[in-house]
Design a protein around this nucleic acid. Sequence first.
DNA 1: GTGAAAGCGCTAACAG
DNA 2: CTGTTAGCGCTTTCAC
Lengths: 332, 332
Amino acid sequence: MEFKHQATVTLAEVAEAAGVGESTVSRVLRNHGSFSGKTRERVMAAVERLGYVPNRIAGTLASTGSRLVAFVIPSLSNIVFPDVLRGASAVLEENRYQAVFSVTDYDPGKEEALAAAMLAWRPAAVMLAGYEHTDGTAKMLRASGCRVVELLDLDGDALDIAVGFSNRAAGRESAAFLLKRGYNRIGYVGHDLKRDTRAGKRFSSFCETLDIAGVPLVAHEILAGPSSVEDGRLGLERLLARATDLDAVYFSNDDMALGGYFHCLAQGIAIPSQLAIFGYNGLDIGRTIPQPLSTIRTPRVATGEIAAQLIVANAPPQVVDLGFELIEGATA
Amino acid sequence: MEFKHQATVTLAEVAEAAGVGESTVSRVLRNHGSFSGKTRERVMAAVERLGYVPNRIAGTLASTGSRLVAFVIPSLSNIVFPDVLRGASAVLEENRYQAVFSVTDYDPGKEEALAAAMLAWRPAAVMLAGYEHTDGTAKMLRASGCRVVELLDLDGDALDIAVGFSNRAAGRESAAFLLKRGYNRIGYVGHDLKRDTRAGKRFSSFCETLDIAGVPLVAHEILAGPSSVEDGRLGLERLLARATDLDAVYFSNDDMALGGYFHCLAQGIAIPSQLAIFGYNGLDIGRTIPQPLSTIRTPRVATGEIAAQLIVANAPPQVVDLGFELIEGATA
DNA sequence: GTGAAAGCGCTAACAG
DNA sequence: CTGTTAGCGCTTTCAC
């Protein structure tokens, strides 16, 4: 049972109380069109007195556009997507837009269902992670006529607007960095790559870069399920049990890398002399551990901000590459 | 400029195409009321053919209740509120409710403004953190007639529904634990308590408990701004510079405590023999560091889930105490 | 500068 | 089982 619109004050009642027409109240409230100062006073007084709260549902239906922005995100389990939401919501709130969200758990089918549910709210824009959508999702989004923003990836074709950075480039630069440092017995620890396709792209371009250099990946350990610090630790433990002579390990992200780092601390494995560790994301915590984590810092908050700004400004279709920053750190 | 409802298929067009009345289409789509299997077929075929997406804005206006649930949260900077959102959104999505959110940055004035903006969408419920609201917010919420859920705190009077646990009890038990372990030169490192009133409650009941035991707090260090791992590190560094003989430090939360832990690791301070560390929240990462963090684990995801379930079920006003779990860990 | 009236797309009685 | 008819509360012409 939902909320009943009980005893809600309507615009008509405000108009009546102020002794003016409904359209006048509407104009005053939206500060649009013309009205006298005196009228304004009376309307505002009535609004105050009655405790009127405009009904945006009705307003949106009557007018031609909504100020809802829909986020369809894969996960809320680590700080990555909250960072994006944070950046976006700051901009949206300033512009009187309202953020709406749902979580797909990295399931493309769920993404399609949730995107459809979102479209029913007729949002000004739908924001999704990356480019990997089902045909149904893509078709539906295109047909909707609503703006679409794909976030945090640039390796593919944008439906409309894309804001982020290249995961392939990130994987490549990570490999190049480790090679430059002279590591040549390199391993990988990652989480479910089928679902997290951006992590998958990083991994594959990482491997390609190693191959080209003639220093192929020695071993890898993939854990099922979402990334976590504990799985990073466990993954490294397993990897080292199989491949004893690694000199560096690339992790699917910082959460996993931190787990690896802690494993080394606990086992007395010297970092980076005995084993180097490299992550991805550039989480704040990586800067405060005794040896700053070597990683790639991604502009997550900025991605949200820019995406929101483009929607608010109704910008034309475009791809915005925000780049990323390689942090040399002390672990690799 | 917002999204234009361009060339959108309407229910009337579907009805026309299917050769039935509008209400029949509506009934079929909502699977409510009665209609023949044959009618159902024809309607669904038309829906499919035209690519019809129901307009929930119009539906909500016409019917008597919305399936929007509004979250007004203080922050997205750490994992605490995302955890709550995650728990809630899973339940809401299953029940075809839609989550909407805005972020207050722990500013009560902003909370009032954002709550007002939320109310304009006529949500089924508004979910807020804790009990500390401006009079304006409380009054507005009460007058709205919409359900209100206060989350993550139970120390105060609920407006309607409250789901969480007692922060005062958490502070008290943390102190009792440290006392039981025999620590008696106890310090505190915290972040901005004016804004984060729940952390403030934990701190004050922590201190009261120490006072009662005749072992008052020796020193404390409060950093401006939100909690962070780095500020935890910095806070402990500063605190130890002033108070050299502490044997335990209570932190405002796990992020801060982890910073303190890393400071000790880097400085070669033995934990817990030389200095004990105690946190709050029970983040996953605290379990994977070489010495599991001693802390209090709070049921954040469950808080979101229960809150959502109560709203979906239109439960009566009530206070749900989910409790918390003290993790003994290895740092205190 | 202001009001009357016609919808926005849907749901909810109410007849049939 | 199904169609017709009023609205939901607002914005938006369009006269005045």
